[in-house]
Simulated scan of single mutants.
Amino acid sequence: MITRRTLLGGLAAGAATASGITLAGRALGSPLEARTTSGHKRSAGAVPLRILNNSGAYGNSSVWVYIVGNDGAQQVWVGPDGGLKPVALGDNGPDGYTDYAIPLAASGATTVPLPQMSGRIYVALGSKLKFKAVKDGNGKPALAYPAGWVSGDPNYDVLHDCAEFTHNSGGLYCNTTMVDMFSVPLAIELSGAKEQTTGTLKDGARARVFADVKAAEGFDRLVIGDKRVIAPGHGLDSGLFGKDYLAPAIDEAWSAYASKDLTVTTNAGTFTGRVSGGKLTFRGPGTVSFDKPSTRDVLFCDGTLAAPNDGTLGPVAAVLGAALNRSTLVSQAHQPTTDPAAFYRQRLTNHYAKAMHAATQDGRAYGFAFDDVAGFASYIEDGAPKEITLTLTPF
């Protein structure tokens, strides 16, 4: 399975600069080239992408879509005709920003051929987004993505959100994501070998998410008016969330497994771990060790919990990160925990992710980067895709 962590291959991680700019990184996909009637590249086997605006809050004339990402060799964007175009510094207009917006049809669905690439489908409501073409660290054209969790970002006041995807010769892999923030309710329907849907919120759930996060102790400042709720990791970096919020829970786990075994089962087999000398060390199919993580490490699933795609350290790190976010690590000595009734039951837990899962009809959400552990992410895939529909669902 291609998880979200491999799905975008670095696109989602990006590099946040001091000015709040987020640069898209490398993504998967090496598409075969074809040409649209306008001369731009289009991937062979493009899949129809239908966009439906059922938000009830904004008309089609006030909604814009952006398809941006990487074709395996360069940063690209997609035009209304499905043309795959390289990002260029000359795309910046007089205001200093590109205009890669795809307007919606006057009514009904808007259909765009989705080429083979990895990227994001952004939706902006009320105002267009400001994507800036810049040079990356290697001097190549890249795109500064919206960072709605940064108050100085030029898109901070724009209501927007995104879904993520990889479309390649193996199929179509996609998810709705709340890893960075939640603002616009989005649902994905994928038609192919079978019919699949994910991301659909329960009636009135957008307001409930805002209310639940605001009511959780220590999480209230993550709610930015009626525009968005930002993830606690970004809140921590912005001074809106406690940098040591999870420290007591992490300490409790490290103390518990100093005197008893913790087992983690992955595709590689079962690892058995103990804490000694401050490190949680596992033995089994391989030997892997972890220093005690910080709250930030847990929320971003990074730092000491970074998960390389190596088949041993990475999967164990993912399971640990999920258990700490879901507050099951101490109570369940055999991981991963697969019963959602056991999740988020402690006072010190990821109340943001808890609210996201409670909001969706299927109970799945991407509230943190390792939410795919045990299959609780709002992620679907199909090896023979025929059509994908992204719906802005009712507010």
Score class of each variant (00 low, 15 high):
residue 23 L to S: 13
residue 204 G to T: 02
residue 224 I to H: 11
residue 201 L to D: 01
residue 22 T to F: 13
residue 369 A to N: 03
residue 147 A to G: 11
residue 339 D to I: 02
residue 29 G to H: 06
residue 337 T to V: 15
residue 56 G to L: 10
residue 47 V to C: 02
residue 32 L to Y: 11
residue 284 G to R: 07
residue 215 A to Y: 10
residue 237 D to H: 11
residue 344 Y to C: 02
residue 179 V to C: 01
residue 211 A to L: 07
residue 67 I to M: 06
residue 372 D to M: 08
residue 268 A to M: 03
residue 290 F to Y: 14
residue 241 F to H: 12
residue 360 T to S: 09
residue 185 P to I: 04
residue 163 A to P: 01
residue 371 D to Y: 03
residue 309 N to D: 15
residue 139 G to K: 08
residue 388 I to Y: 01
residue 127 S to W: 06
residue 278 G to N: 05
residue 314 G to E: 07
residue 144 A to Q: 08
residue 64 W to H: 14
residue 218 G to I: 11
residue 311 G to F: 08
residue 110 T to D: 02
residue 59 G to N: 12
residue 28 L to S: 13
residue 103 P to K: 04
residue 350 N to D: 15
residue 365 A to T: 11
residue 248 P to W: 12
residue 193 A to K: 10
residue 294 S to N: 02
residue 122 Y to Q: 03
residue 388 I to F: 04
residue 72 G to K: 04
residue 53 N to G: 09
residue 326 R to F: 05
residue 246 L to R: 03
residue 321 G to I: 01
residue 222 L to C: 12
residue 138 N to G: 13
residue 85 K to C: 11
residue 312 T to E: 10
residue 311 G to N: 12
residue 303 G to D: 10
residue 296 R to I: 01
residue 29 G to S: 13
residue 53 N to C: 05
residue 257 Y to L: 04
residue 322 A to M: 03
residue 288 V to K: 01
residue 359 A to Y: 08
residue 221 R to N: 14
residue 173 Y to I: 06
residue 84 L to T: 11
residue 307 A to D: 01
residue 274 R to C: 01
residue 149 W to N: 07
residue 293 P to S: 07
residue 134 V to N: 04
residue 135 K to F: 09
residue 215 A to I: 09
residue 316 V to H: 05
residue 26 R to V: 14
residue 16 A to G: 05
residue 226 D to E: 15
